[in-house]
Every structure is written in C-alpha cells, then in structure tokens.
C-alpha cells in the first residue's frame, strides 16, 4: 500500500515535471511567420528606434547626442529579482548583434527568445515589443545595422536562485506574454489605433506606468494607473484621466509635454521620463497627437501607486 502510494506520487511528480518542462519550453515564432518577414528599410527604422527607446537602456548610462547611438550596453537595472545588465546590441558581429539573421532579431523582439533558443528576461520589455508589426521590427534591425559597431561584452546579470534559471521564465511568459491589445478603441479610428500601437507596443509606456504583481507581471486591470518605479526609487505617475492622473490635461497639453517636456503648469519633465520625452520629440507631430488621443481614451483609473 505504502509502496503503491509512493509510486503514485513519483508518477504524478514526473508527470508534473514533464508537463512543466513542456510548458516552460521557449516558443519561437512559427516558420511561416519567419518566412514572411519583409526586408527592412533603415530610413523608416530610425523612427521605430526612437519610439522604442532602445538607447535608454542599451547606450552607455548618461550618454547624450551621438553617443546614444553606441549601443554597447552596461546599464544596470536593479530590480527585486536581482540586477540586470543591458547587453551590447551594437552592430559588432562578435560582441553585439551585427551577425544576427532576420529570424534571430524577430524572435528576440516578438517572442522573447534568443538565437540559441533560451528565454529572455522581461527586463528587456519584449512583452510590449511583441505588439510591434514584423515590418517595423525589420526596419528597426536594418537601421541598427547602420549604427556604430562597439566591441566589448557587458558584464553578466547578477541574479539569485531561482531567477538565474532562464527556463523558469517559460511559465511567467505563459501568464504575461500576450500581444493582444490592452484597450479596445473604436474600430477604424486610425488616430486612436496609431496611438494605441505606439503606447502599447514600441513605446512600452505601460512597463513603467502600470503597477506590477508579486512576480513582476503587469496588473492589467490598472493599465497606466501609476506605479512604484520598477528600478530605483520614486513613483511613476498615473497617466489615465482618473483621480491623481492627468484628466485635467487636454490632448494638446499631452502632445506639448511629449514635444517640449513642459506640463500645463510649466513644471519640467524629470527622472527616467526625460529620455522618453526626448525620443518622443523626434517622432512626427502626428504620432505625438495620436498618443495624446489614446491617453485621453484609455479607461480613467484612480492612482495605482
């Protein structure tokens, strides 16, 4: 009897482990999706690069001007799970990603899977980037291919057990990697759809402005309602129209803030939003207006901080 139970437990344990192993397996894009990847246009990719804010993490900390195009990595992101270090994604073929195929890059951006088939940590905000169009991703790769090659690997992440086991991310991704839109907008409203794309996709605004649960997933019921800063100190404001948010800002006020960094009462942007704002200033005015229209349309929530 004891033995039977034991065997039962062992079999059940093995089944759970096997199921876990299957569930945690990295899922790259389908071969059909990969075969359909278009050729990228580096000129179009420049806007995607700014919208995506890649330099905020992958350029040297504090870099300004031309140095923001040297993507050698090295920025440390201190989180409750340990310290992540942004890797070198310059066009250097050995230390960066200059030697990557289109499929390698698309899998990283859209599926969070590395060329050797491992999961990426969501400190790389692919949970948002997964909403990008394959066309934008390919344009971005073509643009980045033209940026300077910088030699040198960034240091490894400093993570404790169990977070240092990439395989474990599989379950996290099952729960949190969902490229479906966060907010329903009027079908056929091109301005709102563009705004939603920029905010929920490349702009990854929700990664800072939305609170997280205990395992670091975004709390989808409090989209953009403000949060504790994911790295470092401070709070990130509510950018919905709810209490403690920016309901009193007009769409023009939001667009002006993204262009110049000044709030309606002429406070000046600060903290990590400075880099985001400076990127938004490089987009066409119509894109800033689209973001503003979308922020006016998202459900108004009370401050989530």
């Amino acid at each position: 009897m004891r033995r039977k139970i034991l065997t039962g437990v062992l079999v059940a344990g093995a089944a759970v482990a096997a199921a876990g192993w299957v569930l945690t397996a990295p899922r790259p894009l389908s071969s059909a999706a990969l075969a359909a990847l278009p050729d990228g246009d580096p000129q179009r990719g420049e806007v995607v690069f700014h919208a995506g804010g890649c330099a905020s993490c992958h350029a040297a900390p504090g870099a300004k001007g031309e140095d923001k195009l040297k993507l050698a990595g090295g920025l440390k992101l201190a989180t409750p799970f340990g310290t992540f270090v942004a890797p070198n994604i310059s066009s250097d073929p050995n230390d960066g990603i200059g030697g990557w195929s289109k499929a390698d890059f698309a899998n990283a951006m859209l599926a969070g899977v590395s060329p050797d088939g491992a999961h990426y940590y969501p400190a790389f905000p692919y949970t948002s980037y997964a909403r990008m169009t394959p066309g934008d991703v390919m344009d971005l790769q073509a643009y980045m291919q033209q940026l300077p090659a910088v030699a040198g690997k960034a240091p490894a992440h400093d993570l404790g057990f169990p977070f240092n086991i990439r395989r474990g991310l599989g379950l996290w991704k099952l729960a949190n990697l969902d490229p479906a839109p966060m907010v329903t907008v009027a079908a056929g409203d091109a301005v709102l759809e563009r705004g939603r794309y920029l905010v929920e996709g490349p702009g990854h605004c929700g990664e800072c402005h939305t609170p997280r649960d205990a395992i670091g997933g975004l709390d989808r019921s409090r989209w953009l309602a403000g949060a504790a800063a994911p790295t470092g100190e401070g709070r990130i404001p509510n950018i919905t129209g709810g209490e403690g948010g920016i309901g009193s800002w007009s769409a023009a006020d939001i667009a002006y803030y993204l262009e110049t960094g000044f709030t309606p009462d002429f406070d000046s942007v600060g903290g990590e939003m400075v880099a985001v704002q400076e990127n938004m200033a490089k987009l066409p005015a119509s894109d800033r207006e689209a973001i503003a229209a979308y922020l006016k349309a998202v459900p108004a929530l009370a401050d989530g901080r």
């Binding site: 100190e233 401070g234 709070r235 990130i236 404001p237 960094g261 000044f262 000046s268 942007v269 600060g270 903290g271 400075v274 880099a275 704002q277």
Partner: peptide, 16 residues
C-alpha cells in the same frame, strides 16, 4: 534657460 530645467530634474528630482 528652458533647456536646463530637465537636465537637472532628470537626475536631482524624483516623484514620490
């Protein structure tokens, strides 16, 4: 002058 606001706020100010 207006250009100098955010370079100071970027580093020396934090919303709480």
């Amino acid at each position: 002058i207006l250009a100098s606001c955010k370079s100071c706020h970027e580093v020396y100010r934090v919303q709480k």
